[in-house]
Design a protein around this nucleic acid. Structure first.
Lengths: 341, 341
DNA sequence: CTCCGCAATGTGATCGCTCACATATGTCAG
DNA sequence: CTGACATATGTGAGCGATCACATTGCGGAG
């Protein structure tokens, strides 16, 4: 309920009603010691009666604190970024912090900078960046902010608080699975090169292959979209690989579509693995083997790290979460071979 | 770049440097008349030199305005709601407004109320609600806010500014297509009953059927998730309907999966239509016929409506956008019949 | 009984801006 | 040359909180 009253009550109104000074009211509101229990009760009564709410503007003016965070989200409406935004926001609300969100449709450095400036103008106490694109993190980091900054990104970086899942290990587990199944020529459809996550997944693919003496053969690059997966699927030589590790589920959808169009079946002719485990993954035809990321945890980790730094503490290093391999039916041993030892 | 300087410059610093009074600086900053061009230039110079930025806290304290909006988003990480959030935010940024976002994972009335209260405490000048669930709009409306409120919801409502696409017509166009193809028994898998959009789509289905003298037969209810679509697909009697109009694409994915599992093919045995046109829709097997919503436009409409009301104007009624029917290959004439006149 | 010290409370300045009003400067008719 | 009236600029109060410091009240040691 909101009062239609002529004016919001101020700290002085409360003080008058409770018969104390405004300073005592301030003490009660901020839960400071040295207030007699009886006094505190009287004040709390008055507060309730007047529906008093401290003015954040006045408070911010003098304390230079706002209990407010800025969140920069790049990566568009993709499942991953938008889930992270959601969980970050809801974690913040639970912690009674307000968050300004700036969704960037593209990653224009100028736009990012001006979003950060808007945040600063609003007196945010910290900034979180979901760095779908590497440049986003760099641009913000280069601004040399005096307030804490935490970046969601797969690679750790000196002098930068970073949170994120271990994309590299996730990718390796996916490729290891294919190798275990007997695949020897495993292609990769990577995400955009500007994305650190994409880079890490590609590196994981390459390294796992190398660890087994295999060479990284066919590969392509996409922009995360199903359309990109489709384009790749129509273009590559399907006989050159018995399996494809795709950098995200959406592109895997497009790839499987192309494969179908070309008369190849999954997993009989070619195995496909995605990444993310979008809700649809389990219900594609065939259900998609993938690597699951815990976006809820990532969002919470980001917030916790940021709040720690805002409190002045060094951020306790959080172990990177390791994405979980999820086997479904888009992967099978290659036609030619049985399972390898 | 951010100054590491001891203290942010204030209006007085600028005034001193420019050799004018603080009030003149204020005039320049707020672009008020009655300042000589030469003076204005001197002040602007000083502002630039000192990297002066007005303090929003101080300004908000006296003007009681914050140039800030609160956005309540229900509907989780689904494609529709999260796209809308994204476009709303980015439109707001373009208009130089800041927005606080509160993503609600569930739609607990208490949580919604407290999110609104947090917004009020932050002095937001308006609130936008993406009402995935009807109750969300109701809860906020019932709070009798003194600030403007705009709700994204399919149905118009007296005394409430509402924005949204015409779900009803979208649904009718989908069903009309099926009827045109020759289908006579068209099932419906609805969204959750708490969702106004779901209600509208179901109503569209029912009315279009009735308009052709057909009866609404089999139908089910899901929660928008692929899993729900799958469950429905496994449970319903596939011989009782030659086509299914599904309330969203994600559930359609699950339904098609179930159909495949049960050895029915789409569209030969049963046609399927979804709603939303998620990016994956074009690349499913088969590519999904659906109804496309323009979330970008919806986000912008919400913002524009809200800003108009904040400016004191009555909101100019915006025509509801009509979702666009998109034919792909998950629909075909029923086995038994050819195309009808 | 006095004095000290701590707990409880009050006072006034201050944060950085805008608002309402006062004052200075300039221009032109009479 | 003077007054009137606009235009340009300055002054001081006040928004609603916190902060630093001053004051009061009370119980126990000397």
């Amino acid at each position: 309920m909101v009062e239609e009253s002529p004016r919001q009550a101020t700290i002085f109104d409360v003080a008058r009603l409770a018969g104390v000074s405004h300073q005592t009211v301030s003490r009660v509101v901020n839960d400071l010691p040295n207030v007699r229990a009886a006094t505190r009760a009287r004040v709390e009564d008055a507060i309730k009666k007047l529906r008093y709410v401290p003015s954040p503007a006045a408070r911010a003016l003098v304390t230079r604190r706002s209990r407010t965070i800025g969140l920069i989200a790049t990566g568009g409406p993709e499942f991953g970024p938008s889930s992270t935004v959601l969980y970050f926001n809801s974690a913040a609300r639970d912690a009674r912090w307000s968050v300004f969100t700036a969704d960037m449709v593209d990653s224009d450095p100028g736009a990012i900078r001006s979003a950060v400036e808007a945040f600063l103008r609003q007196n945010v106490e910290g900034i979180a960046v979901i760095a779908g694109f590497e440049v986003a993190a760099e641009v913000v980091a280069a601004m040399n902010l005096t307030i804490p900054l935490v970046v969601l990104q797969a690679t750790r970086r000196a002098g930068l608080d970073t949170v994120g899942a271990d994309q590299y290990r996730g990718a390796r587990s996916a490729v290891a699975h294919l190798i275990g199944l007997g695949h020897r020529s495993i292609a990769h459809l990577a995400g955009p090169p500007e994305s650190v996550d994409a880079q890490e997944r590609e590196r994981g693919w390459r390294d796992e292959l190398a660890a087994h003496g295999l060479v990284a053969a066919v590969s392509g690059v996409g922009d995360w979209s199903p359309a990109a997966g489709f384009a790749f699927g129509m273009a590559f030589d399907p006989d050159a690989a018995t399996a494809v590790f795709v950098a995200n589920d959406q592109m895997a959808v497009g790839l499987m579509h192309a494969l179908t169009v070309r008369g190849r079946s999954v997993p009989e002719d070619v195995s496909v693995i995605g990444f993310d485990d979008i809700p649809e993954a389990a219900h594609l035809s065939p259900p998609l083997t993938t690597v699951r990321q815990d976006f809820r945890r990532i969002g919470h980790d980001m917030l916790d790290t940021l709040l720690e730094r805002i409190d002045g503490a060094a951020a306790t290093p959080r172990p990177q979460s390791v994405p979980e391999f999820v086997e479904r039916s888009s992967t099978a041993p290659p036609r030619s071979a049985g399972r390898q030892p």
